[in-house]
C-alpha cells in the first residue's frame, strides 16, 4: 500500500468517467456470486455501507466527554469499553472487545496495529491511511517518542509511554487528559475538543483542537 495509496487517489469525477479497474470488477463479481449462492443477502452490503458511514470520531468524542464529566461513567468505561459505549447508544457491529486506556499526568497511551489495521471502528470510523502504512506500524512500538514527535507531540521523559498493539479481537481507545481551563465547558463543548488523533494517542486533547479538528 505504501507504493500505491497515493496513485489510487482519484477525484470523484475521474472515478466516474474511468472504466472500472480490474479490482472493482472483481469486487462486483465476488459480491454477485455470493448473493447468487444465497450466502449473503442482496441488501447487506448497502446496509453495511450505511453503518460505516454513520461511524465517525464524533462518536468517540462523545464517549470521552462523558467520561470527563461523569466519574461513574468513566469507571464503567475503563472496566468495559464496549458496554459503556453501548450505554450511549453506540452499537458494535463486530465481535471485538474494546479496552479504553486512560492517559494521566504520568502515563501516555498510544494505539497501533503492527500486523495490519485493526482499529476501534465502531466508535471512530475507518482508520486514516497513515495508521495502516508500514512507517507507523513498524516504529510506534519501538520508538514511540520519535513517532509522537513527528505528530508535534513531545512527551516529557518522566512520563511513561505505553503502546498497545491491537488484534482482530481486541481494540483500544485512548482516553486523553482533560485539557486545563475547561472547568466551565459543557459536555458538548468538551466533545468538540476531542479529535480522532487524540483518541489514537498521537496528540493530546487541547483547547486549540476545536478549530483544527481532523
Amino acid at each position: 500500500m505504501e507504493h500505491s495509496t497515493a496513485a489510487h487517489v482519484h477525484s470523484p469525477s475521474e472515478a466516474s468517467s474511468e472504466r472500472p479497474s480490474y479490482y472493482e470488477v472483481m469486487e462486483t463479481a465476488i459480491q454477485e456470486l455470493l448473493i447468487q449462492k444465497q450466502l449473503i443477502g442482496a441488501g447487506e452490503i448497502r446496509r453495511q455501507i450505511e453503518v460505516l458511514d454513520s461511524r465517525t470520531p464524533a462518536l468517540g468524542a462523545k464517549v470521552i466527554a462523558r467520561a470527563w464529566v461523569d466519574p461513574e461513567f468513566r469507571s464503567r468505561l475503563l472496566a468495559n469499553g464496549r458496554t459503556a459505549c453501548e450505554e450511549l447508544g453506540i452499537t458494535f457491529y463486530d465481535d471485538t472487545k474494546l479496552i479504553v486506556l486512560e492517559n494521566t499526568p504520568k502515563v501516555h497511551n498510544l494505539i497501533v496495529c503492527t500486523l495490519c489495521s485493526c482499529y476501534p471502528r465502531p466508535v471512530l470510523g475507518l482508520p486514516p491511511d497513515w495508521y495502516k502504512l508500514p512507517p507507523y506500524r513498524s516504529r510506534a512500538v519501538i520508538e514511540p517518542r520519535a513517532v509522537l514527535a513527528e505528530f508535534g507531540t513531545v512527551i516529557p521523559d518522566d512520563v511513561e509511554i505505553r503502546v498497545s498493539d491491537s488484534t482482530a479481537a481486541i481494540r483500544f481507545l485512548v482516553l486523553p487528559v482533560r485539557p486545563e481551563g475547561t472547568e466551565n465547558y459543557s459536555e458538548e463543548q468538551l466533545a468538540a475538543l476531542v479529535t480522532r488523533d487524540a483518541m489514537i494517542g498521537v496528540v493530546p486533547a487541547t483547547i486549540d483542537t476545536a478549530r483544527s479538528r481532523k
Binding site: 486514516p128 491511511d129 497513515w130 502504512l133 512507517p135 513498524s138 505528530f151
Partner: peptide, 13 residues
Amino acid sequence: IGGLPGQPVKKVD
C-alpha cells in the same frame, strides 16, 4: 513488521 526500522510517518489519508 512491529519493531523494524522505518521511514518517517507521513500523515497521508
